[in-house]
Computed example of a mutant assay.
Amino acid sequence: MSKFVVNNYTNNKEILRVLDHYVGIPVTVSDENISLVDGKKIVPAGTIIGGKIAPRLENDGEIVVEKNTQGGATGSAGAGVDAEGVLLYDVDVTHGPAAGSMVIHGFIKLSKLPKAPVADAKAALKQITFTV
Rank of each mutant, 00 (worst) to 15 (best):
I63P: 03
V81C: 08
T10Y: 08
G100Q: 05
G61M: 09
N33A: 03
K122Q: 15
A79D: 14
E14I: 11
S35V: 10
H21C: 07
P44F: 10
D120W: 11
D20N: 12
L19S: 09
P44N: 09
D60Q: 11
R17H: 10
I34V: 15
L87F: 02
P55M: 05
G72Q: 06
H95R: 10
I34Q: 00
L36I: 11
G72T: 07
D90S: 00
A116F: 10
Y22S: 01
P97G: 03
H95N: 13
N11T: 12
A98E: 13
I63V: 15
L88K: 09
L16G: 03
V6L: 09
N8Q: 09
G39Y: 00
E14Q: 11
G78L: 04
V64S: 06
A119N: 13
A98G: 04
G78T: 09
G85N: 05
S30I: 04
E58Y: 06
D38M: 04
L16F: 05
Q70I: 10
F4P: 01
T47P: 02
K13L: 15
I53R: 07
K40C: 02
D20W: 00
L19H: 04
E58W: 01
V23H: 07
G46F: 10
T129V: 14
V103H: 04
K109R: 15
K122L: 14
Q127D: 15
F107M: 13
P26A: 03
P97R: 06
I104C: 04
E14C: 04
I49H: 05
H21T: 08
L125A: 09
V6W: 01
K41W: 01
L19P: 02
N8T: 08
F107K: 14
I42R: 00
G85C: 06
G100P: 00
S111I: 10
A98L: 04
A119K: 14
N12C: 11
R17D: 06
A77F: 12
G51C: 05
T47R: 06
V81Q: 02
G39C: 00
V23I: 13
A77Q: 15
G96K: 01
V5N: 05
R56T: 06
T94I: 01
N68E: 05
E66G: 13
A121I: 09
K13T: 12
K3V: 12
D82A: 12
S2K: 13
R56A: 10
V93K: 02
V27H: 06
G51S: 05
L16H: 03
A121K: 11
G46N: 09
A54K: 14
T129A: 14
T94L: 03
T69D: 14
G71R: 08
G78I: 05
T129Y: 06
F130D: 13
I48L: 10
T28I: 15
S111V: 10
P114R: 11
D20F: 01
N12E: 13
L125T: 08
V118R: 12
N7C: 07
